[in-house]
Design a protein around this nucleic acid. Structure first.
Length: 482
RNA sequence: GGCGGCAUAGCCAAGUGGUAAGGCAGCGGUCUGCAAAACCGCUAUUCACCAGUUCGAAUCUGGUUGCCGCCUCCA
């Protein structure tokens, strides 16, 4: 079974055929580090994290590159606004990026290049484009001539003529065509600058990805990804640069993730509704965020709402509860299972879903099917679980754990997961757990004495505090409702 | 103005020619002192609307309506 990938370039799903059999080389545009990461960054990074994980589990040798843009107008602007050195700003927000992404259990890419580390390569690239007649110098700036690349617009489906009609483009007399873009920008005093044949300056926005990808992955590589908004102009311009310079296809498959809305509104500066990852993490378990993100197909828009997050949270609780149940009933240790050699029915269905353009939404449906099936088996055999059924349960649980490894969830033991969740809920609602425990003890005494009236009274009292009790054979446990 | 996307039950959502996954919520049941959790059953003869292609369409074609994105260095 081959993996199918939706290619923005052809606007179709295609069979994935790597350049080198068994190897995947992918480049994903990372953040410009001038602020904290918002939930939209999380979607992009988590999406491609899962894709890279899945390729690896499917036996591919993956080389994954995700860059940091650490020289950029926005960083400089932030530096000017705050009086902080631009280098300090970029370093700070790279640290913050790692804080957020580590929390979200995002794996590191194989290469995480920064623009400032590739200045020489970038200058060479610009020189090459000038030599080939794709770029021209004017004052201390170098521009790419879009008219020199006859396929300009092939990714975004635009034509230069069409765009000129209604677009609002800055009129710059020095440009041959309004859509020409900067490869190298001369610097003002105090701005980050490097010596170059064109004077002191810095790279333009698009050139870094062309330069770094060719250095790390080659002139042609398999997958190039990023957010939908990057299709134009960023990725269009990368194609113009790289194919202009090397005269061969740049990336074979272009993958773009959709956007996140907040309560049906686009995140925007004017609305001031940018939702930062670090803030979402205050209210929700990181795996809840992953489940939320992966519950929709990566190309569809998704709407971030408290309700959607609560639903994701309930779903995750249900699965962790099942894992805990299996652990209790069969004595299977928390991290046991996930044997890659063995594959059960659910695992097979899961890979079918993932093979189809990484359909994590469908894959999560399979996950819930597996959960229900194990619960059913355990319910129907609550008296005694035969060895044969025990093996079935083990195998199905093993499938679930394997799926979790791809999706980047179930990394905690159920016990720790529920404890963490409880702690977070207590903090948010400022509830004192000792008081709850006291009431629960009192209720247990009442129950022992068959004083049901008192027991129910306490249950009711706790219910009003959003505390739900569960009387299990081994004792009463409580949890906070969302 | 140009380009593109989307419209599936109360809500979220998968499904690109073969007769509607899954989750949340709701109702009924099993279990329970009562609950909770779990499980079982029920909840879209129907996929925005109209026409067409086809033995057969949510899925393809044309049109209509509605929503959204990009064309502003916002993932």
């Amino acid at each position: 079974m081959t993996i199918r990938v939706y290619n923005t370039l052809s606007r179709k799903k295609e069979d994935f055929n790597p350049i080198e059999p068994g190897k995947v080389k992918m480049y994903v545009c990372g953040p410009t580090v001038y602020d904290y990461c918002h939930i939209g960054h999380a979607r992009s990074v988590v999406t491609f994290d899962v894709i890279a994980r899945y390729f690896r589990y499917r036996g591919f040798e993956v080389t994954y590159v995700r860059n940091f843009t650490d020289v950029d107008d926005k960083i400089i602007r932030r530096a000017n606004e705050t009086g902080v050195d631009s280098r300090e700003i970029s370093e700070k927000f790279i640290r913050e990026f790692y804080n957020d992404m580590d929390a979200l259990n995002v794996g590191r890419a194989d290469f995480e290049p920064k623009v400032t580390e590739y200045i020489e390569e970038i200058k060479d690239f610009v020189l090459k484009l000038i030599e080939k007649g794709n770029a021209y110098q004017t004052d201390g700036d170098v521009y790419y001539s879009v008219e020199s690349f006859k396929e300009y617009g092939k990714l975004s489906g635009r034509k230069l003529e069409d765009m000129e009609a209604g677009a609002r483009v800055d009129i710059d007399e020095r440009k041959h065509n309004p859509f020409d873009f900067a490869l190298w920008k001369s610097s003002k005093p105090g701005e980050p600058a490097w010596d170059s044949p064109w004077g002191k300056g810095r790279p333009g926005w698009h050139i870094e990805c062309s330069a770094m990808s060719s250095k790390l992955l080659g002139e042609t590589f398999d997958i190039h990804g990023g957010g939908k908004d990057l299709i134009f102009p960023h990725h269009e311009n990368e194609i113009a640069q790289s194919e202009g310079a090397y005269e061969k296809p740049f990336a074979r498959y272009w993958m773009h993730n959709g956007f996140i809305n907040i309560n049906q509104e686009k995140m925007s500066k004017s609305l001031g509704n940018f939702l930062m990852i670090k803030d979402v993490l205050k209210s929700y378990h990181p795996e809840t965020i992953r489940v939320f993100l992966l519950s929709n197909h990566y190309r569809s828009p998704i709407d971030f709402t408290d309700k959607a997050m609560d639903e994701a949270s309930s779903g995750l609780d249900k699965i962790y509860a099942l894992l805990e149940r299996v652990e209790t009933v069969t004595g299977m240790s928390p991290n046991e299972g996930g044997d890659p050699g063995k594959s059960g029915e659910y695992w097979n269905r899961f890979t079918e879903a993932m093979d189809d353009d990484f359909n994590t939404a469908k894959a999560i449906g399979v996950l819930f099917d597996a959960v229900r099936n194990i619960n059913r088996t355990l319910d129907e055999n609550s008296e005694r679980l035969s060895d044969a059924l025990k093996n079935t349960v083990h195998s199905e649980r093993s499938d679930i754990v394997k799926m979790g490894r791809i999706l980047g969830i179930f990394t905690e033991s159920p016990k720790v997961y529920f404890e963490k969740k409880k702690r977070q809920g207590l903090e948010e609602k400022s509830i004192d757990p000792a008081g709850i425990d006291q009431l629960v003890r009192e209720r247990s005494e009442a129950r022992k004495a068959k004083n049901w009236a008192r027991a129910d009274e306490i249950r009711k009292q706790l219910e009003e505090m959003n505390i739900v009790l569960e009387d299990r054979p081994e004792g009463t446990v409580w949890r906070i409702e969302n």
